[in-house]
Amino acid sequence: MTRMRINQMANKYMNHEMISLHTELPEFPDGRISLLYAVLSHQPAAASQKELLSLVTSLVQMGLDTHDMVDNEPNTAKGGMLGMRAQQLKVLAGDYFSSRFYHLLSQAGQIESIRHISEAVCDINRIKMNFYAKMKQMKLNAEEYLHYGVALKSGLFLSFTGFMSGLYERLWPELVERFSRCEMLLQELRRVEKLSALEGSWGVWHVLQEGTEEDRQALGNRGEDLSLIKSLLHKYEVADKLGALLRQSTGQLQTLLQRLQSDKLLRELQPLIEPFLQATGPQRVTALKELG
């Protein structure tokens, strides 16, 4: 219900024929936006602005995520003129989505909100630079990869800590971090199913960290052999390990939610946790093993 409303509002700014025809957009951040909206609803000072704040946060996040889809490799000529146009449109679309946030907040006189979100974007960009540098230098392990991913997912939402009061102000940073970690683990679990999405995944960093010298060398010299990555992820039981991490993080998230001391808010947030619970159910784990 809430998800659909915010999504529809955001689509008014994102639904452009040129973008939809020539490039793809990242997944809308439903979970984190719904989490923000629900918690803001319980903050007397911020409840009246919950729709606006959720909308602009979704637009900024979509802008950041769209820019992340730009291929920065030298041989960007992949796909010829159409490929180049798609890359250019990703840059322009990301800039456009981000610019809408300034416009909407300034119209509403929310100058302080502009400052908080702008500072969060600067922090996120610094984190990205460190993250990409470590990846390029191969100075990253699986847990660090997860840590950076969670920081990038949670950065914008942490900027709303000052909008919370009392118990919510104390719990919000941990709540956002736990929820983002669950989202990150679910995303990585789904990548195990897709041969085309395995490059640079948690599983690859796990094998580079835990694998034998022979397997690490094979992974480093694989070229475009994605089937080799898949076989190594199966050998090192990556789906099982991700499932265990997701179960652990979901349990921690549920424990944290109990501390909010609001049955109404718990009922509102329960649907957001369901995808994490379903992804680690017995049938799901069995299906992932069979994929290997």
Rank of each mutant, 00 (worst) to 15 (best):
A142S: 14
F97G: 01
Q137W: 08
I114T: 06
K134F: 10
K136W: 05
I127V: 15
H116L: 15
N125F: 01
E144H: 05
M138H: 13
Q107E: 14
Y102W: 04
C122P: 00
G94M: 05
I127H: 00
L105C: 10
K139I: 03
M138L: 12
Y132A: 02
K128M: 03
L140E: 04
S106M: 13
S99C: 08
C122I: 14
N141Y: 11
Y102L: 12
N141F: 11
K134H: 09
E119P: 01
D95K: 08
K128Q: 07
A93I: 07
G94I: 10
N141G: 09
M138G: 02
L89C: 09
G94N: 04
Y102F: 15
D95P: 07
N130L: 14
R126S: 12
Y96S: 10
Q110I: 01
Q107N: 12
Q110C: 12
Y102R: 04
E144Q: 15
D123L: 11
M138Q: 15
S98W: 07
L140R: 06
F101H: 03
L89Y: 03
S113D: 12
Q107F: 00
F131D: 01
E112K: 13
A142F: 03
Y132I: 05
G94S: 09
D95L: 14
L140G: 03
V91K: 03
M135S: 07
L104F: 11
L89N: 04
F101L: 10
K136C: 04
K90S: 05
H103I: 08
I114D: 02
H116M: 12
A120N: 03
E112G: 10
R126Q: 14
C122H: 13
Y96T: 06
Y102S: 07
N141P: 00
S106L: 15
F101Q: 04
I111S: 13
N141A: 05
S106K: 09
Q107T: 12
N125K: 03
Q88F: 11
L104P: 01
I117L: 15
A120V: 07
K128R: 14
M135T: 08
R126L: 13
A108L: 02
F97C: 06
E143Q: 14
K128V: 01
I111A: 12
Q110D: 06
Q137G: 04
Q110L: 05
L89G: 04
Y132S: 04
R126D: 08
A120S: 11
A108V: 08
S113N: 09
Q107S: 07
L140W: 08
I124H: 00
A93M: 09
M135I: 14
Q88A: 15
K134L: 15
D123N: 09
Y132V: 03
